[in-house]
Computed example of a mutant assay.
Amino acid sequence: MTSTLDPDDLSDRERTAVEHLLFRLADDELVLAERYFQWEARAPSLRSGLALATIAQDEFSHARLWYDLLQDFGHSELSLIYERDPGEFRHSTLPELRLADGNWAGAVVRSYFYDVAEDLRLASLESSTYPPIADRLEKVRGEEEYHRKRARSCLERLAEGERGRERLQNAVDRLFPHALTLFEPVDENVETDIVDLGVRRRGLDDVHMEWLATVEPFLESNGLRLPIEAGTAPANGLSDVGGRAQNHTDDWDGLHDEMRRAYRERERVEANRIVEDPDDI
């Protein structure tokens, strides 16, 4: 792939590969940030709530970094977030799920599953042949490392008690299939191009298997188990929904409506920035 920073110099094949990857990165982070903000007031302690608020802001910032690159392809932030139909988002189903009030174990397991996957995904982008992606990784990876360590610590503490382990196991059983959707392609042919062109250096199947090799022993060390044998876990996870192919759960419509409510009610004609433009920082 060309080393230019100008998307206009990319071939159609290169352009499609980069856009597909950026949509996945941005949409995952945006939707997860929305769920984190909902949990800020539901956390079991003030300290946990403050930590979630910080992490949510980080995820919004990361989403902004990737949406900013999509604007180089002619998209606007207005069309990318506030005026996009819910069925057009390409995030995994894991971030969109609504967790019952008080289900702190679910919030912890979701964070752990996602943060391990995000670390591996970002590592596979470090030598991306599309330089604007690689240029933004240092900031994102540094913050995601804190998220991952905190998720591990929260899970370990909760697993110390029998009741906590029971709640964690219930969360693992529910969320594991949705976590697998993190490794689904939007389109098989485009996914092949993403790897062949070096936009991402590893295939999703490889990242998926490394994720399993990381998650399974950690859960077992805390008295937990995956609901199926890890080595035979299907890459698609769910038969009827997956997110990447724009098939979402019923929870997504409600969350999407909340995301757009303030924009609609105030009759805005342009979108507020999620965070500062990275090029201005």
Rank of each mutant, 00 (worst) to 15 (best):
100 A>G: 06
57 Q>W: 08
57 Q>G: 05
86 P>Y: 13
48 S>I: 00
116 V>C: 14
73 F>G: 09
98 R>Q: 11
79 S>Q: 12
82 Y>V: 06
80 L>E: 04
90 R>G: 09
64 R>E: 15
107 A>G: 06
73 F>Q: 06
80 L>N: 03
76 S>D: 03
94 L>P: 04
56 A>F: 01
81 I>M: 02
53 A>H: 08
65 L>S: 10
98 R>C: 02
111 S>A: 15
49 G>Q: 06
107 A>L: 09
72 D>C: 03
72 D>Q: 12
82 Y>S: 08
68 D>M: 02
58 D>T: 11
81 I>Q: 02
101 D>I: 06
75 H>S: 14
113 F>G: 05
102 G>I: 09
112 Y>R: 12
79 S>R: 10
115 D>P: 02
58 D>M: 09
91 H>F: 04
107 A>K: 10
109 V>S: 05
55 I>K: 06
76 S>A: 02
114 Y>L: 12
57 Q>P: 00
70 L>I: 11
69 L>M: 14
63 A>G: 13
115 D>N: 15
60 F>H: 05
70 L>D: 04
85 D>R: 10
59 E>F: 00
92 S>P: 08
92 S>I: 06
118 E>W: 11
118 E>H: 14
111 S>P: 01
105 A>R: 03
87 G>N: 13
95 P>I: 02
64 R>C: 10
83 E>C: 10
60 F>L: 15
86 P>S: 13
108 V>M: 06
111 S>W: 01
97 L>W: 09
106 G>I: 05
70 L>Y: 02
84 R>H: 03
95 P>L: 04
48 S>Y: 03
69 L>H: 04
52 L>N: 01
82 Y>Q: 10
60 F>R: 10
108 V>T: 12
115 D>M: 08
82 Y>T: 02
79 S>F: 00
81 I>T: 01
63 A>Q: 03
106 G>D: 08
82 Y>R: 10
84 R>V: 03
65 L>N: 11
49 G>E: 07
115 D>E: 15
59 E>R: 11
85 D>W: 00
76 S>F: 03
78 L>Q: 13
105 A>K: 06
90 R>E: 13
78 L>R: 15
69 L>R: 14
99 L>E: 13
77 E>D: 07
62 H>A: 08
105 A>P: 08
83 E>S: 11
85 D>P: 00
75 H>Y: 15
71 Q>R: 15
57 Q>A: 10
109 V>N: 04
94 L>N: 07
73 F>K: 04
69 L>P: 03
106 G>S: 09
110 R>W: 14
114 Y>A: 13
67 Y>Q: 05
86 P>G: 05
52 L>P: 01
63 A>N: 03
91 H>V: 07
108 V>E: 03
50 L>S: 11
108 V>K: 05
48 S>N: 07
54 T>E: 13
118 E>T: 15
83 E>W: 02
78 L>M: 05
70 L>Q: 05
55 I>P: 01
